[in-house]
Design a protein around this nucleic acid. Sequence first.
DNA 1: GTGACCACCTGGCCGC
DNA 2: TGCGGCCAGGTGGTCA
Length: 284
Amino acid sequence: MPEKPEVITVAKTLERHILGKTIEKVDIYWDNIIEYPSLSEFKKRISRQIIKKISTRGKWIVMELSNDYLLVHLRMEGKFFYRGINDSRGKHEHVVITFTDGLQLRFHDTRKFGKFRLMNKEEWNKVPPLSLLGYEYNDKNLTKEYLYQALKSRKLPIKTVLLDQSIIAGIGNIYDDEILFLSHLSPLMSANKVSLDSCQEIIDNTKKVLDSAIALGGTTIRSYTSDEGVHGKFQQMLLVHGKENELCPVCGNTIIKIKVGGRGTYYCKKCQKDKINSKGERLK
DNA sequence: GTGACCACCTGGCCGC
DNA sequence: TGCGGCCAGGTGGTCA
C-alpha cells in the first residue's frame, strides 16, 4: 500500500510526464472515486486547466492547476499509467484524464479505494482532509516535545497511534513496523507510556526509514507498484515487516506476526520491549 | 476527546 | 474444478 515514499515516487514521475500539460477532459468510470465536488462539477471545472505544480501532503498527491488543486489519494492500490487516446482501457482504469496533446493519464485501482478531490485555491489546505493532517516527517516543527504531548493522552498501542495521520502525516503500516523496530519499542506499548527520549528515537528513525525508502523509490510488495509498473527497492531493506517466522537481523530471535488495531504487525519480541518499569513509569 | 467498530472494495489464498 | 469464506488495509463515519 502506498505510504509517503511511494506517494513521493509517484508524484515525481507525474511531474516528469504531465507538468505543464493542459487537461482536455476527464472521463470517470467509477463515480465513487470522485469525493468532491459532484461528478458533473468536477468534470466541468477541471477541463482546460493546466498542471502547474505537483507535490505531496501526507499520503495525498497535490496537483496545483490553473484555478484549483487536484488532490489524489492512492489508498491501497491506486496507480497511474500513461497511455495514448487509442489505447484500450483496462478493467480497473477508473479515471482517464486526456490532455490536449493526446496523452492520457489513467488512474488504475483494482479495489476502487482511491479518492480524487478538486478544491478551490482559497480552501484547499484549510478544510479536511489536508487541514486534519499532522506534521510531515521532515518538518522542523516535529519535535520530541510535540510528539510526547500528542501521545500522552492516547492509551491505544503506539503502533496504532503512529498510523494516526493527524500526528505525523505519511506513516503507513509497513514503515510503522520498521520505525518501531529501530526504536526498540513494542508495537503493543500504550502510546502514553512512550518516554520523551523514545519520542526522539521515533522521530529520528521515521526520518531514517522514510528518507531511505524515498531514495530507493519506495517499497514494492504484493499490492503496490508505482506508475508504469516501476518497482521500488526498499522491500529489500525491510527488517521486520513481512518477515514472519524469519530471524531477527539483530538478535536472531524469530519475528512474529500479530494483529494490532486490526493491522498485521511484525515485530521481534526480544528487541522490542515496553520501555517502562514495573510501576508503569516511562524510562529515560 | 477517545476508542471501537464498520463500510468501502476486489484479488488472492485456503479449505472443502 | 468450483465454491464460499477469510484476509489484506487507509480512511471516514457512527456510536458509546
